Simulated assay, not measured.
Amino acid sequence: MSNFQLGLIIAGGVVLAAIVAFNAWSAHRNAPKRAKPPEPDGAAEPALRQEPAFDAGGAPVEGADVPGAGTDPSFDGHTVDLRDAMQLPVPPSERRGGLDPLIDAIAPLVAEQIVSGDAALAALPPTRRAGSKAFAIEGFNESTQQWETPVAGQRYSHFQAGVQLANRVGALNEIEFSEFVVKAQGFADAINAAADFPDMLHEVARARELDQFAGDHDAQLAFVLRARHAAWSPGYVQQNAVRLGFTPGAIPGRLVLPASGPGLPPVLTLAYDTQFALSDDPEQSAIRDITLSLDVAQVHRSEQPFARLREVAAALGEAMDGALCDQNGTPLPAMTMDPIAADLELLYDKLDSRELSAGSLLARRLFS
């Protein structure tokens, strides 16, 4: 074999090795980022909890205290609670609950005699809906002197039936009002009570006016965090989100940032394609974008949800090398967020003036 042939063989081997090395480097570079293994000193991520279910009014419920909701972008392993830093007040206790003439059509039901809770429960209709609207019956407890859903072992002097005037499906219509009357009258007959129903046309008109107000003041914000370079695995997304206080949701590919108190809907939602979370090998799934969303009417303004959304987006963007975009994929400069914040403050004021403050029980029922 000549020196020339030997040189060609060596050169070919070098080129082949270079190609293999480049392909390996390229595959590693483009592979989805994975979650880092636990720290050797035994440090653990914040405890994970399941996403809340729904309460009787159709509003999300979070029923336990929650971990801190923020961290600095360096992610040095020390969690920083953004709520402590901003000194956010805890939302006040609900002053109004149950049926309310502000958002419900209500019919008094006067019984001929005291009715036991057991008898009232046995007489309740099997469903708590009239069409697409929430339907409820409450009794006035003789002992507590409070309206409540009938409870076994209690005694009630009179009752009231109600149907919600509007929700995100639309306004109460004549068919739904008629269904409400049928159900309430059936309950009244069962407990020997006289029902006094409001005028249908008046209540339907009230429902349309309320629905118009709700439609004009409903805000659900969604922003996209898009990977600038390498994609993300589901574990990588969850690891970074958990460090900011998010907890896994009931739906795969969904995480929620709990509110500061029990019984309140989550402040923010983080979501990505469910198929990635359900794949046979999730760590090989390549997530290019995630969605951060805020349901304004469901969260009390004292939580400062939009400010926290901005903090979360900035922290995740820096840690995961992502760019904040609108739902069409257009990058959003920081200056575009200030006008949104100002508009939200005006929206909060308008909801307050209508006694439908964001995050209140009535607002959560109406905007559901």
Score class of each variant (00 low, 15 high):
S353D: 12
E303V: 05
S116L: 06
R168Q: 15
S368Q: 06
E51L: 10
Q5T: 14
A241Y: 09
Q212V: 11
A219C: 09
G235N: 00
A166S: 13
A134K: 06
R168F: 10
A24R: 09
I103E: 06
I10H: 07
A231Y: 04
N3A: 12
T274P: 14
D273I: 13
L292Q: 00
L109E: 07
E112L: 13
Q50S: 13
D211C: 15
V296H: 03
R243K: 14
L8I: 15
E303R: 05
W147F: 13
D289R: 09
K183S: 15
D84M: 12
L121N: 06
F246L: 06
Q304E: 09
Q154P: 00
T247G: 14
P46Q: 04
L124H: 06
S93H: 12
A44M: 15
G359T: 05
P60Q: 01
N173Q: 07
L362W: 06
V256C: 02
S360N: 02
A161Y: 03
E318V: 14
L210C: 04
G68L: 03
I287A: 00
G162I: 05
D41E: 12
Q154F: 14
L48I: 11
D196K: 11
L292F: 05
G263C: 04
A277W: 07
Y272S: 03
L244T: 07
L294E: 01
S357R: 13
R310I: 14
K183A: 08
L270I: 06
G98S: 08
Q298Y: 04
A166E: 04
R354F: 08
R226E: 08
L366W: 02
S116V: 09
A207P: 04
A297F: 02
V90A: 14
D199L: 11
F177H: 01
R34P: 05
S302T: 11
T127L: 08
P89Y: 02
